[in-house]
């Protein structure tokens, strides 16, 4: 065999989502609460392999396995479909009360049921911990005549409504545009694309006047000057882009708009198991790998645990419903 054993093992294990943790160790989380996983733990990812949330779940899995945070093997299970609805539905239907199942949740899984009443809502799961918030920035093309957000805002306000075309890469981008145009008091014309990548491509090709998107996808373009960031949708500037002001700084009253990503367990899981998972996830959140991942993503670290997370989600739900004009 020319294939060395190690490389082959890499290939095989690689294709394997089954990551076996070593046996015979105790964690402090185990000591804290009375419960430990009783069999293989299933991490359900309600999205297809390859997206941002899938990657986050895989990083969480990697940290859990490498730092030996649980005494059982961890199996990753992608249940993609319907903006997270299929995965949530799967957990709600066939993993009810199962403390050995954890599921990745994010803003999309909260927005889907607002738009599609058929989809299961997040009340079907028990939120455990939030890890991070994705941010939004206002971008124009590098050769745009607008050098600052102020110039752009003045021009939007001066022209008739819906004159400006902004590309979007999904529902969350459309919501960000709604936030922005409500603050302006003028409608922007959103041209909807299927992904952040397509949205950016349309901006680079000069097919739209501007866009609002996650900073991650634009970092390389920013560095080369192909696109220009004009404003930040959060309270503080980014350390990676110290020159880009927040929209609040330039006097535009936009509410903070960020997308969260975290972990939940099925509904009605034993409180001891909930406590156990909070302990594990706090360790995941504190690990250098997670901090590096969030920094690489130009996102905001936001560890929010347990009841606080539930309250945070309720507030987000209200914000989303307001933006989508779908009251509860």
């Amino acid at each position: 065999m020319t294939l060395s054993r190690r490389d082959f093992a890499l290939g095989a294990a690689a294709s394997a989502g089954l990551m076996t943790g070593g046996a015979g160790f105790l964690t402090s989380a185990f000591a804290q609460s009375g419960w430990v996983p009783t069999r293989d733990v299933e991490l359900v990812i309600p999205f297809a392999a390859g997206g941002g949330s899938d990657l986050l779940a895989r990083i969480v899995g990697k940290i859990i396995v490498e730092e030996k945070l649980i005494p059982q093997p961890l199996v990753l299970n992608n249940r993609p479909g319907g903006g997270g609805a299929v995965g949530i539905g799967y957990v709600a239907a066939s993993r009810r009360k199962d403390p050995n199942t954890i599921i990745l949740i994010n803003g999309t899984t909260q927005i889907t049921p607002i738009l599609n009443p058929a989809a299961r809502t997040l009340t079907e799961v028990q939120p455990i911990m939030n890890f991070m918030l994705d941010d939004f920035l206002l971008f124009v093309s590098g050769d745009s005549k607008y050098k600052t957000a102020q110039e752009l805002i003045d021009d939007i306000k001066a022209k008739p409504t819906k004159t400006f075309n902004f590309s979007t890469g999904g529902t969350t981008d459309i919501m960000a545009i709604t936030v922005f145009s409500r603050a302006l008091g003028k409608d922007i014309n959103p041209v909807n694309f299927n992904s952040g990548g397509e949205s950016m491509t349309a901006l680079l090709g000069g097919h739209v006047d501007g866009t609002i998107g996650n900073p991650l996808e634009f970092m390389g373009q920013l560095a080369s000057g192909k696109v220009r960031a004009l404003g930040v949708f959060r309270d503080t500037r980014f350390s990676a882009m110290p020159d880009v002001p927040t929209l609040k700084e330039i006097g535009l009253d936009v509410p903070n708009f960020q997308m969260w990503r975290g972990i939940a367990v099925p509904k009605d899981v034993d409180p001891a198991a909930q406590l156990y998972w909070q302990g594990v996830m706090e360790k995941v959140s504190a690990s250098p790998t997670m901090k590096k991942y969030i920094a690489d993503n130009v996102a905001t670290e936001a560890p929010i645990v347990g009841a606080e997370f539930v309250a945070f989600l309720a507030a987000q739900e209200k914000l989303y419903r307001g933006l989508l004009a779908k009251p509860a």
């Binding site: 390859g50 941002g52 990657l55 990548g197 970092m219 390389g220 373009q221 560095a223 080369s224 690489d296």
Partner: peptide
């Protein structure tokens, strides 16, 4: 350009970012 040309290249772009590279015209 750092722009995905297909579903698979979108994932490879994600990989580049994970390796701490910045996909874009300067790559």
């Amino acid at each position: 350009l750092g722009v995905p040309g297909s579903g698979t290249t979108a994932i490879i772009l994600g990989a580049l970012i994970m390796f701490g590279l910045r996909p874009g015209p300067e790559l």
